[in-house]
Computed example of a mutant assay.
Amino acid sequence: MITDGFSYLAILLLVGGAIRMLETSTKHRLFDYLPGVVALYFIVMLMATFGVWEQTDSVNATYSSVKGNLLPAMIFLMLLKGDLRKIIGLGPRMLLAFAVSATSIGIGFVVTYAAFKAWLPADAWKAFAALSGSWMGGTGNMAAIQGALSVPDTAMGYTLLMDSVDYALWVILLLALVPYAAAFNRWTRSDTAAIDRIGARLEAAEGADETPIDFTALVFLIGVALAASALSQTFAGLMPATSFFTGTTWAVLIATILGVVAAMTPMGRIAGSNEVANVMLYAIIGLIASRADFAGLAEAPLYVAAGLMVLAVHGLAMVGAAKLFRLDLFSCGIASLANIGGVASAPILAAAYSQLLIPIGVLMAMLGYIIGTGGGLLVGKILSLL
């Protein structure tokens, strides 16, 4: 049994690294439906269930210190590629589709929680808020909300389960609809010429202004991210605290603002920010999972059903908006998957339409990162009032 904090952290990072290595080297289809970060969570949870480590003072101190300091740093880094000027360049139709997507997801969570709350634990709204952050942005946003709202570590098992199972079904559905794009566009009377032009322009400019990943870039990114974390926590300590806006909540929001601003400076062109952010994300997910166990997942089917209801509300809203605003299937699908799947899957759906449209999927997913944390916290506040 592990009792030392450093050994505890080392084993978590080793497991995360091994899973990632397995995912990239084998290219097994299992990882299409069970992302590495989800596999990490459940493997570490299994280890915690069997008591591989003990919650000693050293382990608890490592958990609190590493998680609390890495969280704002990760948020800062994952936003560095989200240049708002490029995102605005996507045009009003794409941004309208994204706005409808994010809003309908939030509404879906509120409606679903109201319908299911009689069968859910009292603090289930926190798990729903964390998942709403993920489905508006990405796993990093989910981790940010987990820290901001102090979502119980066991409840995060439900969140990741919904995120994995329901997300996989949604990706399959959106990919299956690609051959019907022409018929859908005729039904909505949409014009795709502007989308094609934007895709061609972004594809031509892709990577032109980005520096290569090297030692200098990585050291600088780690240093500036940790400095942003320290700055966020310092200013968070000066902000008024309430039961909802805790010090961690303020730190997360301040780090988000710093990341959005930094993305519009030359710092946003430094390659490697996504890679370093993902290392931090794996560490944070491992830490969260280390405090959970399988005994708390007895209500898994109920949560999965709730996730499907959220997607049903979202899907109906997207179809209605497409008809009302004459949106094409590509815009609706990319907007949806940019929210629900993030940067890992939105480009895949874009490529199913055309290789030229991949950069649009990336930029839309980055917009999800920008709004995911704030959107999830807003949904959480509404759910807490219910």
Rank of each mutant, 00 (worst) to 15 (best):
T192S: 13
I145F: 03
N185T: 05
A193P: 00
L160I: 09
Y158D: 03
M142A: 08
T188P: 02
Q146N: 15
F220G: 06
Y180V: 07
Y180D: 01
L131Q: 12
T139R: 01
A182V: 14
I172G: 14
L161K: 00
G199M: 06
P212R: 11
A241C: 00
A176G: 09
T139H: 04
P179M: 10
P240T: 12
A127T: 14
L169P: 07
T154S: 14
A236K: 10
W187Y: 07
F184D: 05
E203Q: 14
A227I: 15
L161Q: 00
A176P: 01
S132M: 02
S232E: 06
A182G: 10
T154Q: 09
Q233F: 04
M156Q: 00
A230F: 13
P179K: 09
D214G: 11
L226M: 13
R197S: 11
T242G: 13
G207W: 08
T154L: 06
L161N: 00
D196Y: 01
L238D: 00
A181I: 10
L177I: 14
G137F: 10
T188V: 04
A236I: 11
A127L: 08
V171N: 02
A208Y: 04
A228P: 11
G133Q: 06
T154E: 11
A168Y: 02
L231K: 01
G157D: 01
I145H: 03
G147A: 10
A182I: 12
A155S: 12
G137M: 09
T154G: 12
Y167R: 01
G199C: 09
W187K: 09
E203M: 10
Q146V: 15
V171D: 00
M156V: 13
F235P: 00
S132P: 06
A129Y: 06
M142K: 03
I195V: 14
V224M: 12
W187D: 03
A236M: 06
V151P: 06
R197P: 01
A130M: 14
E203H: 14
T234K: 04
L160V: 04
M162L: 02
F184Q: 05
D209V: 15
T154P: 05
E206C: 02
W170F: 11
